[in-house]
Write a protein that binds this DNA or RNA. Structure first.
Length: 364
DNA sequence: AACCCGGGGGT
DNA sequence: ACCCCAGGGTT
């Protein structure tokens, strides 16, 4: 073995990033499943701490399957794409019910496992040889072959799969798949690739053309839309904050956040909307505008203006299934990082600089 | 095939 | 400000 795969593996063994899911092959399928689901559309360095905490809470497939779904989602809080957690929970229950793992070729029938995750599990745990097609391999293939197409094009997927198979055939270990991912993350990066350091530059058409950046082509980006919301931040004497479960079908569905309401039209007065929201919850009293918080959800840019309820608020809200009091620092329910941003804004408003008494401006 | 979903890191 | 991330499900 002296071809590209050998150079790639040599580079990888010297430069590999240490990640907690990188155990010897074949790997434990449960832990690998957790890692691969978390890694979907999420940068590996960000996954690592979530992965460790998650496995400490759910060390085995049986432990995860026995837990309520909300507990599983709670351990995803801040990671995004929360449907992943619900589907992971469903898959673990499916596995327990059917008494074990299906044949590697049928992994994709499990909830939340698409072609990438099924191939990764098969390769890392069950001796599979089909390459997991992730964004890294697709980009590397586009450049090696000077394949001018968007990342998701079917033609590029075919070529990338063929490239992955050829490299696996030469290497004989699923380590090449991880090597490709690290190469894509560290060398063959989307912007400013480090071609001089690349172990595959000798076989790279894009490098020979001198324009690695041109591949793959970038699809038209969806325009970003701005939204303005208000939140009411209602604190109890013990420091708990009123949270509501986001309704299904809306953004951040199923997660627990302070009462939120869109400001429509965007030119409307956020303060009036917040007053009406507080009134609908049974709270009267003065509202204090806090510093606005920004939060991005795919192509939407949210500006959330929190309003703190004054001290004359009633102590209890109406008892509802979708409503509860939680400490914002250690919530016992699934939530989003938007909660900690709002908590930070409330903290600043209370102890930091001068409180905002005027209505904040519209979002950009 | 196109669209939707969280959140943040890197440039 | 912009890109995109170890994608999958739905329409």
């Amino acid at each position: 073995m002296a071809g590209p795969a050998a150079r790639l593996l040599r580079w990888f063994r010297a430069a590999a990033r240490p990640f907690p899911w990188r155990e010897p092959f074949p790997r434990d399928p449960y832990r690998t499943l957790v890692a691969e689901v978390m890694l979907q559309q999420t940068q590996a360095a960000r996954v690592a701490p979530f992965y460790q905490r998650f496995l400490a809470a759910f060390p085995t497939l049986e432990a995860l399957a026995a837990a309520p779904q909300e507990e599983v989602v709670r351990h995803f809080s801040g990671l995004g794409y929360y449907r992943r957690a619900r589907l992971l929970h469903a898959t673990c229950r499916t596995l327990l019910r059917r008494g074990g793992w299906p044949p590697p070729g049928e992994l994709q029938s499990l909830e939340g496992l698409g072609s990438y995750t099924a191939a990764a599990l098969a390769a890392f745990c069950f001796g599979g040889s089909e390459p997991p097609l992730d964004g890294n391999l697709l980009r590397i293939a586009a450049r090696l072959l000077a394949h001018e197409a968007p990342l998701r094009a079917a033609s590029l997927r075919r070529d990338a799969a063929a490239l992955g198979r050829a490299l696996y055939l030469e290497a004989g270990t699923p380590e090449v798949f991880e090597a490709l991912m690290d190469l894509g993350a560290q060398v063959c990066r989307p912007v400013s690739p480090r071609c001089p350091d690349c172990p595959l530059k000798g076989s790279c058409r894009a490098f020979q053309l001198g324009e690695p950046q041109r591949f793959p082509t970038v699809p038209a980006t969806r325009p970003v839309t701005s939204l303005l919301w208000v939140a009411v931040w209602i604190r109890s004497r013990s420091g708990a904050v009123l949270l509501q479960r986001r309704p299904p079908g809306e953004l951040l569905a199923g997660l627990w956040l302070p009462p939120l309401r869109p400001v429509l039209p965007p030119a409307a007065d956020p303060c009036a909307v917040a007053r009406e929201l507080a009134r609908s919850l049974g709270f009267a009293g003065s509202l204090q505008a806090l510093p606005a918080v920004r939060h991005s959800i795919t192509y939407r840019r949210l500006t959330v203006v929190p309003f703190a309820l004054g001290a004359e608020a009633p102590r209890v809200a109406e008892k509802r299934e979708d409503q509860r009091w939680e400490c914002p620092d250690t919530p016992g329910v699934p939530t989003s990082s938007l909660l900690s941003k709002l908590a930070a804004a409330a903290g600043q408003g209370a102890s930091g600089g001068p409180p905002a008494t005027t209505t904040p401006g519209d979002p950009p």
